[in-house]
């Protein structure tokens, strides 16, 4: 394992070195790609002024709000659709029509309805996320082993107990896996919304860099997105482990 880490670090260092050499010797013009040092200097400025942190925070808040709202709607709906077929029949046609629409196609309508403030960003995250959550939840509940339900009923469980003590815990790993995948989708939604119309957030930061011809700023924004999403994934991973203590043994 230690050997693998060494190789990973060496790989990154070699890449940065090649980048540095290419941009400082003039092999690649700084008009097209700033050097790592320029990006670092830009990042230091942004950190010192507090702008970077503000952008990360505001984008994170938008993702969080949209993601939670989508989860509150989609997860219960998915469970109901999985266990009660009329619900699935009612919702299915709309899901089929809405699924092919990328979240950015909602931007004109949401701006018309909600302006370009926070609500519109949250709406874009919501609209781009809920269908995926619905699909993963539906699939997770449908995959629950019917033998477990049989066993529970044989042990005297009634409908309510079967739902709360068998179907939901059995489907939980699949639901959480789906939420983790959707989280990355939620992030791409908020960034696209911020690129099109926003005064704040990481997407807006990148767009500012573009408008001002400040390429290092664009790259700082991109790196900040990567790091923020990675950290969000790590937090999600932690929460998953806390919620699913039994899954740890299955993986080993």
């Amino acid at each position: 394992m230690a050997g693998r880490l060494v190789i990973k670090l060496a790989s990154v260092a070699a890449f940065l070195l090649a980048w540095h050499v290419a941009t400082t010797t003039g092999a690649v013009s700084s008009v097209f790609l700033p050097s790592p040092a320029q990006i670092l200097a830009q990042a230091q400025d942004l950190i010192a002024s507090g702008d970077l942190w503000k952008s990360v925070l505001i984008s994170s808040e938008r993702v969080f709000a949209g993601f939670v709202l989508a989860g509150l709607v989609a997860v219960p709906l998915g469970v109901v659709m999985a266990v009660w077929w009329p619900a699935k029949a009612i919702v299915d046609p709309f899901v089929s029509l809405l699924r092919p629409l990328p979240s950015i196609t909602w931007i004109p309508l949401t701006i018309l309805w909600l302006g370009i403030g926070e609500q519109q960003k949250v709406a874009i995250v919501f609209l781009g996320s809920w269908i995926y959550m619905l699909f993963y939840t539906l699939a997770a509940v449908q995959r629950v082993d019917p033998l477990l339900v049989r066993a529970a009923r044989n042990l005297g469980a009634k409908d309510v107990a079967v739902m709360w003590q068998v179907i939901l815990p059995a489907a939980l790993p699949g639901i959480i896996a789906g939420l983790k995948i959707t989280l990355a989708i939620s992030w791409s939604c908020v960034l696209s919304a911020e690129l099109v119309a926003a005064q704040s957030g990481l997407g807006a930061l990148i767009w500012q860099g573009k408008d001002w011809g400040n390429l290092p700023l664009v790259l700082v924004g991109m790196v900040a997105i990567s790091i923020t999403v990675l950290i969000a994934d790590l937090i999600a991973e932690r929460i998953e482990r806390l919620l699913l203590p039994w899954e740890r043994h299955r993986r080993t």
Binding site: L147, L148, A152, N154, L155, Q165, V166
Partner: peptide, 30 residues
């Protein structure tokens, strides 16, 4: 489904999210 006729399944059908204790207590909880 008749709880007075308890079934021991060939494939165990244990609840993976519950400990041994939780599994054994399941029927009593019901």
């Amino acid at each position: 489904i008749e709880p007075r006729c308890g079934v021991v399944f060939q494939s165990y059908a244990l609840f993976p999210w519950q400990t041994v204790q939780g599994n054994v207590e399941f029927g009593l909880r019901m």
